[in-house]
Design a protein around this nucleic acid. Structure first.
Length: 825
RNA sequence: GGGCGAUUAGCUCAGCUGGUUUAGAGCGCCUCCCUUACAAGGAGGAUGUCGGAGGUUCGAAUCCUUCAUCGCCCACCA
């Protein structure tokens, strides 16, 4: 082999595209049991990818998440396990619909202009054209997914699974429809689950408003009250007030219970009610009750049988129930109402008030609590199974502190609103009979079916209307660990790969996704979908804010890959990933420099391996007979390999990467390669051959250890090394298929480690003195010896004595050049 | 209002279940160096009462208590 072919800088671009295509086309990422049918692997390792949105483009969060998964997957694959990483994408209901709607808006069209069917066609077209962006980018990262098993949450099989899940839950009495207050996004015009409504602290106002007391001769009047005062943060909802509540024990107000008030502006009579919910300490101790626009008021309304008056259109504008305010946007209405109250002398004051208000997690619009008919999943029974599984030790979080976050949520779980008033998604498999045959009563019961019914099962009418709503996106992703494997069909894959092994994800989707997957797994498969959940850090910009395109603080991983390569990006990320990752461009220098270091260490190896034909992936026989540096590096290699193995097993990837980094940079490059130079320059052919053999072997092992972290460069160098191997016939086709190098009996050479440690100390001491005495390095040892510097000589003498003790120095020499010569080695 | 995390060199961070760490790395800084790989490199150096205060222990950056500052998550007090 020759070194001339290798430039001094690693060209990631050229290497990466070529290597990935080869891995994929040769099927290395398919499970071992697929590649060699006869061979049934005993152990499995299965991960399902957290499916990125089809609309997504790779961001640093993806880069971190998928690098971690890829490291684990590649590591287990090298360990010989039947390894599968299932990739795919999520149809991302609202997000995708928004993208296509925006596109339509450019043509001055809305989805309503073109109708549901045409709109859906548009979305599918968009998906065909752009949906592969993110998966292409995952390939550039090096993600070793089995692309032959790629799934999409709207593809046929998964739609089948969604139907099955919905109908099964319905049959089990766990799905119901009802009129409830839900989180409504007036911009997206759809219901949102509690998790999709993100609370934000808002500096709002607390408005104090007088409500006149009705009727003459009332008790209230006798004590001199002609009005009461309520406090509210949302005055516009007063249009729908149907009561005012006080605490039943509140001495100030309890005499008012049962009296009537006049709702200002609307001029309606409303009662004063007593309800324990009211906190006498807050505001004035009197609360306006608006059952149609506040979840608490809704509950109170139920308790007191109050009327529910909806005063808003779905877009947040006041409807006819708001009479003179009809047509005004909710915030305009607020202003107008306050102004009108002021004129009427009923407005007292506005206090500044900090409170948390829900915002749509897609478009950040302020969420409106809104009364509407929606579908829900009863979560308590599902959560109980998950909690039971947790108590049985079946779900383990890494790091452990997430366990409590998870169980707390399960313990306080609320029903899940699963219907969405959008078009893109799984349409709810419920049909209503619109026939007017003889079974009108029975037909009120909707038909819930796995297959599209062609007629009403009760009256036979063909006039059926499917529920127009679609399901929450997460209703398909919570089935992901088994729907991707073929469920509800009893497929071979499902049998082979469920339950999966680990789940790797970010903290922000523990509720959205992780908890729900566990519940679904238990409910539909009777088994947790994975046993270990690794929650990694969040990627943030240097400022501490979340990295996002809209904030303009995002670093595009693709740009980084173009510049320095996927390996460098991956390695940098992983080294930083011990906790939340705060990124800036400079942080990628570690990986870039490291990649280049490996490249050049290999150049050195190839240069000195020229003409050497005895290279082998087999460890040298009788290692104890080798020279000290050779013994030392072999010993270090096994120690480090075992350490990395241990760290990977416990998800300490940053630790593992750091370990490897230091082994390669300090031990291998700074010391081993440096110590080998005098050997290669010397005349001792035997010593030269021995060191060549060790250099070859150690480099080969390093590449294997490196492969999960930096797959491209390791494969590239390894393939070149393979050409020179005497036993190349026994080498696998690709490093992807090579065995993970942890020896059953690690080579541990305490003597070599000790003496090289001493030598390192001594040399460092000598160099330090040389530096202080301003002696040129070419004469450092001679000069130190000649300088008669007491300290220098002391270090030097102690080093020689140690060497003598170890029997490694043949004789004491008066000159100091021996360190540079191979004689001591 | 609850919960969690962070606080270590000028900057960004490691330091996993208390003792080979006399506290480490990368970047930055200073000195010297193109030596059979690598200047995106090598050799050496300076800089830290490990947020404050208590406590447990033979021994604490590491465990406990408390305070301070920052950050995150959860939460229907209008």
């Amino acid at each position: 082999m020759t070194s001339e072919a290798l430039p001094t800088r690693y060209n990631s671009k050229e290497v990466e595209a070529r290597r990935y295509a080869e891995w994929e086309t040769k099927g290395y990422f398919r499970p071992q049991s697929d590649r060699a049918k006869a061979h049934t692997a005993k152990n499995r390792y299965v991960i399902v990818i957290p499916p990125p949105n089809v609309t997504g483009i790779l961001h640093m969060g993806h880069a971190l998440n998928n690098t971690i998964q890829d490291i684990l997957v590649r590591w287990h694959r090298m360990k010989g396990r039947d390894t599968l990483w299932v990739p795919g994408t999520d149809h991302a209901g609202i997000a995708t619909q928004n993208v296509v709607e925006k596109k339509l808006a450019k043509q001055k069209k809305s989805r309503h202009d073109i109708g549901r069917e045409t709109f859906l066609k548009e979305v599918w077209t968009w998906k065909e054209e752009h949906g592969a962006t993110i998966t292409r980018q995952l390939r550039r990262l090096g993600a070793s997914c089995d692309w032959t098993r790629e799934r999409f949450t709207m593809d046929e099989g998964l739609s089948h699974a969604v139907r099955e899940a919905f109908v099964t839950l319905y049959e089990r009495g766990l799905i119901y429809q009802g009129n409830y207050i839900i989180n409504w996004c007036p911009r997206c015009q759809t219901a949102l689950s509690d998790e999709e409504s993100a609370h934000k602290e808002i500096q709002g106002g607390l408005y104090h408003i007088k409500y006149p007391v009705a009727g003459k001769g009332s008790k209230a009047e006798k004590v001199g009250e002609d009005h009461i005062v309520i406090a509210t943060t949302r005055p516009e909802t007063m249009l729908g007030d149907t009561a005012v509540a006080v605490h039943p024990e509140d001495a100030r107000y309890k005499h008012l219970i049962g009296k009537k008030l006049i709702l200002p502006l609307m001029e309606r009579e409303i009662p004063v009610i007593g309800d324990e919910f009211v906190d006498p300490e807050f505001g004035t101790g009197m609360v306006k009750v608006t059952p149609a626009h506040d979840p608490n008021d809704f509950e109170m309304g139920k308790r007191h049988k109050l009327e529910e008056i909806n005063v808003m259109h779905p877009d947040g504008k006041i409807n006819a129930n708001g009479r003179q305010y009809e047509g005004l946007d909710r915030f305009q209405a607020r202003k107008k109402i306050i102004a009108d109250l002021e004129v009427a002398g009923l407005f007292i004051q506005r206090d500044s008030h900090l409170h948390a208000v829900g915002h749509c997690y897609r478009c950040d619009t302020m969420v409106e609590p809104y009364l509407s008919k929606q579908w829900f999943v009863k979560m308590k029974p599902l959560a109980e199974k998950a909690l039971k599984a947790h108590r049985a030790g079946k779900t383990i979080f890494y790091p452990d502190r997430w366990t409590k976050v998870y169980t707390n949520w399960l313990e306080g779980i609320r029903d899940w609103c699963i219907s969405r008033q959008i078009w893109w998604g799984h349409q709810i498999p419920v049909w209503y009979c619109e026939g007017d045959g003889e079974c009108k009563l029975a037909c009120k019961q909707p038909t819930v079916s796995r297959k599209n019914p062609d007629k009403c099962p009760h009256c036979g009418s063909k006039n059926l209307r499917q529920d127009p709503d679609v399901l929450d996106t997460w209703f398909s992703s919570w089935l992901w660990p088994f729907s991707t494997l073929g469920w509800p069909d009893k497929t071979e894959d499902l049998k082979r790969f469920y339950p999966t092994s680990d789940l790797i994800t970010a903290p922000e989707i523990i509720f959205f996704w992780v908890a729900r997957m566990i519940m679904a797994g238990l409910e539909f498969m009777g088994e947790v979908p994975f046993s270990r959940i690794y929650i990694h850090g969040t990627v943030r910009a240097q400022s501490g804010l979340k990295m996002s395109k809209s904030l303009g603080n995002a670093i595009d991983p693709l740009e980084v890959i173009d510049e320095i390569g996927a390996d460098a990006l991956r390695f940098s990320m992983i080294m930083l990933s011990a906790q939340d990752v705060y990124l800036s461009r400079e942080k990628f220098e570690v990986g870039r420099n490291f990649t280049n270091k490996i490249w050049n260490a290999s150049r050195f190896a190839f240069l000195n391996l020229e003409g050497f034909t005895e290279g082998s992936a087999q460890s040298p026989s009788a290692p104890k007979t080798l020279s000290l540096p050779n013994r030392w590096i072999l010993s270090r290699l096994d120690t480090v390999a075992a350490e990395i193995e241990k760290q990977l097993a416990g998800f300490s990837l940053a630790q593992a990467a750091t370990e490897l980094y230091h082994f390669i940079w300090s031990d291998f490059c700074d010391w081993f390669i440096e110590l080998s130079k005098p050997v290669f320059l010397g005349a001792d052919q035997k010593a030269k051959t021995e060191t060549q053999r060790v250099l070859f072997f150690v480099l080969e092992r390093i590449l294997r250890l490196l492969h999960p972290f930096s797959p491209f460069i390791s494969e590239e160098i390894w393939q070149q090394l393979k050409v020179a191997a005497q036993d190349k016939d026994q080498w696998p086709e690709s490093l992807s298929l090579a065995a993970w190098p942890v020896e059953a009996k690690p080579f541990k050479d305490a003597e070599a480690e000790r003496s090289v440690g001493l030598m390192q100390q001594a040399m460092t001491g000598i160099r330090d003195l040389r530096s202080r005495l301003n002696i040129p390095p070419s004469q450092e040892l001679e000069a130190v010896a000649a300088s008669k510097n007491k300290a220098a000589l002391q270090i030097f003498e102690s080093f020689k004595m140690q060497m003598l003790k170890l029997g490694r120095l043949k004789a004491l020499k008066t000159d100091t050049a021996f360190i540079k010569s191979p004689s001591w080695i």
